[in-house]
């Protein structure tokens, strides 16, 4: 095979220019996933009546569906129903005014929430009951105990999985081409379609994803280190 370095470079430059899109989708989905994931996990862990069954159902449904399926279905629903929902809410926007990026963010959020809540629940359960009891007996309320004692300990278990989830999500964003959004992967492929240089394009995309993963890994490790002081060696 004849690899042309200059085409790798072209594809690479094109891919790099779409990093903001990939990172934006990933970051927003991670934040939404975290916020709602914590709520879903708390409902399931502390078995809130009625809601916990709904939360169980939510997680089971969205864990089972392939992400590309969720993306395409959301996009179809968006195209067919958005205008009527908007006019029902007396909004003046129409389906043309809304960027498909938001559809991508919307669709990716569901599996993200489901997956995050599972990992958060596991991390919550890793903290011993005795830690709650100790908090109560020194006069703390549930919320105080949770925030000051439980949360920091559960984060130590959760952060390594979070790093993995963020990387997986970042890779999953490459599926947004299905709904017409161009990101790193599809940015790299732009030139491939012109010069038939697919190998170079995928290689360039891989390089960008490696770079991004390395950065995320590094950030995850630093967070782990700073919150895990209490596990260290004698002071």
């Amino acid at each position: 095979m004849n690899i042309k370095p200059e085409l790798i470079w072209e594809a690479f430059k094109s891919a790099v220019s779409y990093i903001p899109i990939t990172l934006l989708i990933t970051l927003v989905v991670v934040v939404i996933g975290l916020l709602f994931g914590i709520i879903v996990a708390a409902i399931r862990t502390y078995r809130v009546p009625v809601l916990s069954h709904a939360a169980d159902g939510f997680v089971i449904i969205f864990k089972a569906m392939p992400i590309n399926l969720i993306l395409v279905v959301s996009s179809l629903l968006f195209v067919t129903h958005f205008n009527s929902i908007a006019s029902f809410l007396h909004l003046t926007v129409t389906v043309r005014d809304v960027s498909r990026i938001y559809v991508g963010i919307f669709a990716l959020s569901f599996p993200a929430i489901a997956q995050m809540s599972e990992f958060i629940r596991g991390s919550l359960l890793s903290v011993d009951r005795g830690q709650y009891e100790a908090g109560y007996t020194v006069g703390l309320t549930f919320l105080q105990t949770f925030r000051r004692i439980i949360l920091p300990q559960m984060m130590l278990v959760f952060v390594p999985s979070l790093t993995g989830i963020v990387i997986a999500l970042m890779k999953a964003t490459s599926l947004v081409i299905l709904i017409g959004v161009v990101d790193v992967m599809n940015g790299a492929l732009k030139y491939a379609n012109l010069y038939f240089s697919y190998f170079e394009a995928y290689l360039a995309a891989a390089l960008v994803y490696w770079g991004l993963s390395l950065v995320i890994e590094f950030l995850g490790k630093s967070v782990e280190k700073s919150i895990g002081r209490y596990r260290g060696d004698p002071a």
């Binding site: 005795g130 100790a134 105080q144 920091p152 209490y230």
Partner: peptide, 22 residues
């Protein structure tokens, strides 16, 4: 099994209830 707060130093274990609780 003592149930000390794992994420707090010995001193903080003692002060936690005084500062936050009381």
């Amino acid at each position: 099994n003592h149930n000390l707060f794992n994420n707090r130093t010995a001193l903080e274990n003692v002060t936690e209830g005084l500062i936050v609780g009381r």
